[in-house]
Design a protein around this nucleic acid. Structure first.
Length: 574
DNA sequence: GCCGTTTTCGGCCCGACTGTTTTCAGTCG
């Protein structure tokens, strides 16, 4: 039973209680506990060994007991009882748009509908319209909703979402009376995967704009359409939500639409204490005076808070931190002086060392490490030695050309073999400026085996950085089953940096592991792992770090040139 | 069910939109 499984159980309880008609505060409590568990970052068993469960935010006595029961027995009597009252198959219909707990309960109690198939059949036969509160329109909408539920559940990587949203932004910007257009939602928070496109715009008279938008090519279905808001299902299966307010309220709108929903709930609670009612329209004081916010900063300012960066707005403690003036000074892409993991055409990259160096310089880097794969070079010691010598010579020449514009390091990305040894001998590693060691195969070893394998690599005195530590490859492989606390301890002890790999298929460490690692005092290294010059501008590694509350001092790539070089030097001398 | 810049008891976010309503409940973000 891991953190994710526990979280899913509490979400399930919340949904069942909603259908049962339990008060919303109770179900919210279960959802908050679920979210908290999901983002704990530390394995729950491990956590339990040093801290009481009730110290987890949102976990009180009752939920702590349930967690314990689950950890001890793998079962939960409370959930069993609940599932005897309400068929669990009913939960799937909550995923249909416009179906919430009340309708689900109605379908179940008055028509015996317990799953999506039942619901579809009843709708087709026109039986739903007889239920109280349901008419012909709702019945038709439900049928469409079921079709969408079956065929177009989609989640796309952030960079794809940017491509998809671009034409809508462009069109909105061209409309008369539209003064500002901005991406909001999870895209603005830099989540790695996006299931809805959220856009806000400032406009005095938004009705005609929204009317015109709703007839655009690319829209399959209008889900809702009003004066300030509209929701569409796009041809490609994603949803597009747009909101509008006049310019003088745009800051409030942007804050609202950026979310997350849980962050907004917390912020509104906080606003209550400060004597305000907060909404997307503005702040309403108890005295009835309304405060409009044209800029998003003003919303937080008026509440006495510093502006919270969108990446932190997940209800992971950011409001408390802001109130205590203890928000992290998040790392920025411009802070990166170095990129310490990239490939050239000598291994599986597309371009020469020189092309990569030029692109890195253009992207603002002052220092790069060329780290071609050892497995390409692995062809007999003599030949390998020659190849490395050749590469070194090329680098010296190139280094002269760049002068102090760009410093080049000669490195390698070695494979960590199944037993934790490396696929190049120490006497070769010793001669290199920097060594990245990575897991590339045999990733499904049992937890203790693969953990010890990684720890052994960390303990190799010539290893400086562990590349994409979990070896995950999205969307198909979530990464090795590692005991992270053990990995973090070893990395910290050996002064080895763990990578946040910016390749969108890796993003590894992920944000939860990265936050935990930084908290444990482990050094991090954000690298693009570029295989082509265009990839050197990858920003998503920094996004992961920002979502993990990480500051620049915790990332070796953001240190000065001298600091990085002396860190490497101390490591070589140890 | 959780939690304490008002609280260990009594609170707990807010508005837009829709459909079926005859004044509002449900859903959503």
């Amino acid at each position: 039973m891991d953190n994710t499984e526990l979280a899913e159980i509490f979400d399930r309880i919340a949904s069942l209680l909603e259908i049962k008609g339990e008060i919303p505060f109770k179900t919210l409590a279960y959802r908050r506990a679920a979210e908290s568990l999901r983002n704990l970052g530390e394995d729950i068993h491990q956590f339990q060994s040093h801290s009481p469960l009730s110290t987890i935010p949102g976990v009180g006595k009752a939920i702590a007991q349930k967690i314990e029961e689950l950890l001890n027995t793998g079962q939960l009597a409370f959930l069993h009882r609940l599932e005897e009252e309400i068929p669990p198959s009913l939960l799937e219909i909550l995923d249909i748009s416009d179906v919430g707990p009340k309708k689900a309960a109605l379908f179940w109690q008055t028509a015996g509908i317990a799953n999506v198939d039942d619901l579809e059949e009843a709708a087709r036969e026109g039986r739903l319209r007889d239920l109280s509160g349901i008419g012909i329109k709702t019945e038709a909408h439900l049928l469409e909703g079921i079709r969408t539920y079956r065929h177009s559940k989609r989640r796309v990587p952030l960079r794809i979402a940017h491509k998809l949203v671009e034409p809508w932004l462009k069109w909105l910007k061209e409309q008369p009376n539209v003064s500002q257009v901005q991406i909001a939602g999870s895209m603005r928070r830099w989540k790695s995967h996006i299931d809805e496109l959220h856009v806000v715009f400032a406009c005095e008279n938004s009705k005609p704009v929204i009317e015109s938008l709703s007839t655009r090519k690319g829209i399959r279905r209008v889900l809702a359409q009003g004066v300030h808001r509209a929701a569409f299902e796009l041809e490609d299966g994603l949803r597009l939500q747009v909101w509008s307010q006049p310019q003088e309220r745009f800051g409030s709108l942007l804050q609202f639409a950026t979310g997350s929903n849980m962050h907004n709930v917390r912020l509104r609670e906080f606003a209550q204490h400060a004597g305000f009612s907060l909404s997307e329209r503005g702040l309403l004081g108890r005295d009835g005076v309304e405060y409009l916010c044209a800029g998003e900063n003003e919303v937080y300012e008026k509440l006495g808070l510093p502006c919270i960066p969108p990446e932190l707005r997940e209800d992971h403690g950011e409001i408390q931190a802001a109130a205590a003036n203890a928000l992290p000074d998040l790392i920025r892409f411009e802070d990166l002086t170095a990129d310490l993991h990239m490939h050239t055409s000598r291994s599986d990259g597309e371009d020469s060392m020189e092309e990569m160096a030029l692109a890195a310089r253009a992207a603002g880097r002052r220092l790069i490490a060329i780290t071609d794969h050892s497995f390409i070079l692995k062809m007999g010691k003599k030949l390998l030695f020659d190849l490395l010598e050749e590469q070194r010579a090329e680098m010296v020449q190139l280094g002269n050309k760049f002068g102090d514009q760009l410093t080049l390091l000669h490195g390698v990305e070695v494979d960590i073999l199944s037993d934790g040894t490396l696929d190049l001998p120490d006497e070769m590693l010793q001669k290199l400026d920097i060594v990245v060691a990575s897991l590339h195969f045999d990733l499904k070893q049992p937890r203790h085996v693969i953990t010890q394998r990684l720890v052994r690599a960390i303990r190799n005195p010539y290893v400086d950085i562990i590349g994409h530590p979990s070896g995950r490859f999205l969307p198909d492989f979530e990464g090795a089953d590692l005991d992270w606390e053990t990995v973090f301890s070893a990395a910290r002890e050996c002064n080895v940096a763990l990578e946040i790999n910016a390749n969108p298929s890796h993003l590894d460490l992920d944000e939860r592991q990265a936050r935990r690692a930084a908290h444990r005092g482990v050094l991090l290294s954000i690298n693009t792992d570029s295989h082509a010059p265009r990839q050197l501008g990858r920003e998503q590694g920094v996004a992961v770090a920002r979502r993990a509350w990480i500051e620049s001092r915790q990332v070796i790539n953001a240190w000065s040139l001298q600091e990085i070089l002396s860190w490497l030097k101390t490591r070589k001398n140890k």
